[in-house]
């Protein structure tokens, strides 16, 4: 692989969007999870409740997608609120 190819691949890797995923947890209260979504992402009450119900019923919800740095920041905030959150490559 030449230098130009390596640089291009690095740029592609940096551009890959990341998903922030919140996973179900039998302990966290639904009202608490809703409050956290509203605070961290600025969701409306309705949107926060939709994601909370998706977590509860399907076991996980993708709550945000975008650049890696911001995804890390969101996961850190969610961990600060003690939600079970991970980040994963969107593709």
């Amino acid at each position: 692989m030449n230098e130009t190819q390596a640089e291009t691949q690095t740029e592609i890797a940096l551009d890959v969007p990341w998903n922030v995923v919140v996973h179900n947890d039998p302990v966290n209260l639904m009202s608490y999870v809703t409050m956290v979504f509203r605070r961290v992402f600025g969701f409306s009450k309705e949107k926060a409740e939709q994601h909370m119900m998706e977590v509860h019923q399907k076991g996980r919800s993708v709550v945000w997608s975008g650049g890696r740095e911001r995804a890390e920041l969101y996961v850190q905030q969610l961990h600060g609120y003690l939600l079970l959150a991970t980040m994963e490559r969107a593709i």
């Binding site: 890390e72 996961v75 850190q76 961990h79 003690l82 079970l84 959150a85 991970t86 980040m87 994963e88």
Partner: peptide, 13 residues
């Protein structure tokens, strides 16, 4: 309390 942010899929992270 301190979960792995990448669920074991991104060792560096």
């Amino acid at each position: 309390l301190f979960p792995d942010p990448a669920a074991g899929k991104e060792a560096g992270l």
